[in-house]
């Protein structure tokens, strides 16, 4: 019976100012849909990975602005909800092959980062709970590795850029830093390079072709090889 009661619990929300009653078990996206809205904008993966549904909300009689991914936030009573369809943001255009992994690259391509006043508004807006200001600061002093690590969980929703009083687009700075780090600073996987050379030298082709042939002509024999293969995953 307790389960039944839980199921039927409704909350009052305001969707772009209009009042609706929706089940308390919904997230913000589903609450919109329950109320009768169909999304084209402001929606993407519905799983917390794409940043399309990043949104702001307020509670009735509370000055504070809150931030969330609409697909990952439960509705609560007296929430004021909206969708944010698009955020215009400047992205630098570059050829990664022509960049050097020097700290100054970030400032050269995104000079506006120097305007950061460390107000931390970006961090407060981040639905991924990243220390956005800290990575913008790391970008100013050219610490590419720090920017990469602090920004890694960024899903590029754009809320930081929308809130920044210095008009910085932190998430694009993070993207550039991570690519510089991945290409130039992180150690190369030499075992991968070695394997690629072996593949170019056709080292495995004979066996692969043999397996392909078995798969077509003698699948039982291939099954035996499969079952008998050594499993080393410890």
């Amino acid at each position: 019976m307790e389960e039944e009661a839980e199921k039927e619990k409704m909350v009052k929300v305001y969707i772009m100012g209009r009042e609706f009653e929706v089940p308390a078990t919904l997230n913000i996206v589903k609450a919109f849909e329950y109320a009768g809205y169909r999304f084209v904008r402001g929606i993407g993966c519905r799983g917390g990975y794409c940043g399309a549904c990043a949104t702001v909300y307020r509670f009735k009689d509370d000055y504070r602005l809150n931030f969330a991914l609409a697909c990952q936030k439960a509705v609560e009573n007296n929430m004021y909800l909206t969708i944010l369809p698009f955020m215009p943001a400047e992205k630098a255009i570059y050829d990664l092959n022509n960049l050097k992994p020097r700290g100054s690259v970030l400032l050269e391509l995104y000079p506006e980062i120097a305007r950061c006043v460390a107000c931390n508004t970006c961090t407060k807006a981040c639905p991924q709970e990243l220390e956005v200001m800290d990575y913008v600061q790391a970008a100013i002093r050219g610490d590419i590795e720090e920017v990469s690590n602090l920004s890694f969980d960024c899903i590029q929703c754009g809320l930081c850029a929308m809130r920044c009083p210095a008009e910085i687009v932190p998430y694009n700075v993070g993207q550039l830093a991570r690519r510089l780090y991945g290409k130039y600073i992180a150690p190369q996987a030499m075992h991968t390079h070695k394997r690629v050379e072996e593949i170019h030298a056709c080292v495995f082709d004979e066996e692969l072709d043999n397996y392909s042939l078995l798969a077509k002509e003698d699948v039982e024999k291939l099954k035996k090889i499969y079952v008998e293969r050594e499993i080393k995953v410890g």
Partner: peptide, 13 residues
């Protein structure tokens, strides 16, 4: 790796 994708690696790559 050439595109700059950050795979999980150790210090030796």
């Amino acid at each position: 790796e050439e595109l700059g994708i950050m795979y999980d690696k150790d210090e030796e790559g």
